[in-house]
Write a protein that binds this DNA or RNA. Structure first.
Lengths: 211, 211, 211, 211
DNA sequence: GATGAATGAGTATTCATTCAT
DNA sequence: AATGAATGAATACTCATTCAT
């Protein structure tokens, strides 16, 4: 029986919740190690230290764990991001900080990165959550006269694609602060900033960040 | 026995070539319908109108067809794109036209779209081909003093991500000329164009296009 | 569900052991009927009265059962032989008795005979076990000044070949006590006995045997 | 198209014979390389330089080639042995020389060794041929008052087993003249010779041999 | 006779899921 | 609730054999 994010969350909860959390942790871990389609029920239960039959007392089928694992990760990321963004009001700063924090959160938990990347297409919930979040910030920036764009779902997806590509590359080639700054600049360019202004904005936005 | 791109190419060739082409066509079709990992050898041979064993007279194993199917599609797209880009010398125009043509070629053959999207990560050849192509055009633009960027692999992947996202969306929601124009503008913004100049450049580049 | 040597051994053991034993019994039986290479997993499970997939809860692959079946038989024979040879100290008597008992054990379980004969070349363990056993007895005889030979691996294999041929013939044409006596005499001749002494020695050695 | 024993034999014969011989040669070669059960029709025709369908113009099925290949080898060995034994009249000398020559012929064509050893059990013809040959020599020796045995099929098989074991060992561990002498001595011991006489007899029999 | 494309029955192996204990 | 043995449908791959050209 190993430690794990969800299991830690469930400490103190009933036994049922703890067992369930252990299965989810095992699932997340295995997805990170071998990819979604290579995860077997037996691997999950073995990793969680129980008999294979036990699995079906907690999930109806394999799809269900996979979906819940992905959802849990997404919502954990989302909560952490919320916490770190509360006090910021300037839209460009919000966009830059959110991007930087998002990338950093994900790269610190490689097993989360994998799930999120694998599910970009599959998991509509995640994509939409992120999009809503982003949409609010961009609309704010438009209202503040900082961004020269029309806010469309298409635009949001374009920006998400930039972030996704950056994560993929850093996930494969290792974390890289310069690249993180570049995505931020690129996003600002997409939003209408000139190269020079984008660079300055990124610099100042990051200056004020503890991370 | 159905028609199909590769089978058409092989008309007149020997029987061996024709059968092989039929298997490839069936494979491409099935990938488009159900995704790579859901393709079964039996499906392929059934779709191609032959016995299951015949498959193995032409391919060593499942991986081999999948790889060849992806490769064939990529190279068909690449050839068509080359043909259409020959005479253009202005870098921004090249970038816009290539983007537009690429999207249009792929959306005309939805079964190709799927393969290309599924293999973005898997098929290193394709991604690198596209990247090289793009790199040449961007370096040209830098030399022509049109783009304000440093050319890095990271930048290329960012641009490819924009195009990939656009294709994905149009593949799901239907072809959309406005969105195609927007990707082009976004790419130019990334390359240092102001919103206004980007819009004008796209308009003029596309004006001269027959498609 | 049939009786069988290993299943009998496993009576009273856990269910897991009993199922495993049933699979081994079925395997041994099938090898005897059709030879090693003709044994199919489906035959084994059907003969053992279970579903095909059950096999893989107990063995990793076909090779593993075949190897274990052969090994189990060899070790069963070996144990039985040990039990029957304990008290004998005179080397020529040991050689004669061991030969006779070995042949008799094997011919009483025809399914064992087949496995042992088929694996003479494949199963190095068995051949070496028998050889070591034999070597000890022959060296004893040399020390007792009863045998006129130099003990070499080659000599041991020659003697084993005599026993193997005798078993093969009796396996095909039926058990035959005269032939068993003849092999024993032949072995003694190989070890330097004259025809007359060999005959007497065999007669006296066998006289004292209960079997 | 390669050279090969049977193909050489068939030089000058009709085309049909030559093609057939080429297939047999290929078969023998492949058996030697990978064992009987691993030989595939496609391998045979490829090795013989023809299309797979051609095979069935010459043989009814796979078993037929395998059988004929084994038979051809056996009869080639037999012919060569006959040639070398003609002039010898003393029975013990015949036995020793035949054994030595047999072993030497087989070890010189490793591909033949393999076939002969693999078919010891399967190919009744071969075993019986050798047995008849041997029987004649031993009966001669009994008539010459040189051997102290009763001639039975069982005895013949015992002797053949000794030779077979010697070939197997030398095939695996390399040709070894001492071991060849030892088999000969062992055979003479079986036939009633004392250790000393056996040794002398072998020495004198081999002295007169060109090989 | 020669060819080689096509065939399809046969087999090992995997794994989600069920269910009696 | 937990267990873990049993299940069997699903699937890739092999290869002797056939037969139209």
């Amino acid at each position: 029986m190993q430690a794990g994010h969800f299991r830690d969350q469930a400490t103190g909860a009933g036994k049922r919740e703890r067992t369930r959390a252990a299965l989810l942790d095992a699932t997340v871990q295995l997805i990170a190690e071998k990819g979604m389609e290579a995860v077997k029920i037996n691997d999950i239960t073995t990793a969680a230290g129980m008999a294979n039959g036990t699995f079906y007392n907690y999930f109806n089928d394999k799809d269900e764990v996979l979906r819940e694992a992905a959802y849990s990760v997404a919502s954990a990321v989302s909560q952490q991001l919320d916490r770190e963004m509360k006090a910021i009001t300037d839209a460009p700063t919000r966009v830059v900080r959110a991007t930087k924090n998002f990338i950093s959160i994900i790269l610190q938990k490689p097993e989360w990165a994998f799930i999120l990347l694998e599910n970009k297409h599959t998991l509509p919930g995640l994509r939409d959550d992120v999009a809503q979040y982003l949409q609010a910030d961009i609309e704010l920036g438009v209202a503040q006269n900082k961004f020269d764009v029309t806010v469309t779902p298409f635009l949001l997806q374009q920006i998400i694609a930039l972030v996704g590509a950056a994560i993929t590359i850093q996930f494969e080639a290792g974390s890289n602060e310069t690249q993180t700054h570049e995505v931020c600049e690129n996003i600002l360019r997409l939003l209408g900033f000139s190269p020079t202004k984008a660079r300055k904005q990124v610099a100042s936005a990051i200056e004020g960040d503890a991370n």
